[in-house]
Design a protein around this nucleic acid. Structure first.
Lengths: 115, 115
DNA sequence: CATAGTGCTTCTAAAACAGAAGCAAGGAGA
DNA sequence: TCTCCTTGCTTCTGTTTTAGAAGCACTATG
């Protein structure tokens, strides 16, 4: 049984409280979810283009994530591909400081050999 | 082979670009990572308390995440438990708007039967 | 009619995760 | 010293999630 789409107000994986932020953390803490939102914020894209942009992410997972995000009304499919809804756009706006943070992180991270 | 800790400047899962934000999205898009940061922002906690707060999350995964976050210098272990570093605190600050967004999301989400 | 593009499903194998058990180290108390 | 308890953390087995190739139904274009 696949994990169901988290929604505010009901228990999610790791929290029975129903607190909205817990649902958000469950939803966003699934592989590719943050990345998909990020990509759609750069520009709308169809299924296959999204797959290309994320370096050939698995189609089965992409399909699952698109379903969850659509259920959650963060994205919607239009004639020109998937686009963020107003709600989804707000979420990415809320995440925008992440980009500038990541540069600070990079600046403070020793770029030596990996690991 | 376990996935290695993402770091800015080197390729990560789904992106060979080395762009810092891609490393951040890979790191944060792993189960429990966002939640752990969130919890530590509420208050520092030791291993077992963290496990309790996240409703008995698997100890093996908790251990892996703590290792990744420590490697990434977002958290550090002190006498009173794990705490966010300055860098980690900045990240959670960057994520703070997520909480208010989640309330808007809840307000616009029909609280009917799940799925 | 062929060709190529789309969104998306199905399948098998690999990776990640869940959860119970337990280990080594460090107190606190007797 | 000898329990007793707590800590961070590992190891193990079984389940869930993800990867990746293949392919289906549909639309458009030639």
């Amino acid at each position: 049984m696949p994990a169901r789409t988290p929604r505010p107000g009901v228990p999610v994986r790791g929290s029975a409280s129903g607190r909205p932020v817990m649902a958000a953390l469950d939803l966003l803490g699934r592989r590719w979810t943050l990345r998909i939102l990020w990509e759609l914020h750069q520009a709308p894209a169809g299924f296959r283009e999204l797959q290309r942009r994320c370096e050939r992410m698995s189609s089965s997972v992409l399909s699952a994530r698109l379903g969850e995000l659509t259920d959650s009304r963060l994205i919607a499919l239009h004639a020109d591909g998937y686009r963020l809804t107003a709600l989804g756009g707000d979420l990415v706006d809320a995440l925008r400081p992440l980009d500038s943070w990541s540069h600070r992180w990079a600046a403070e991270t020793d770029p030596g050999p990996s690991r």
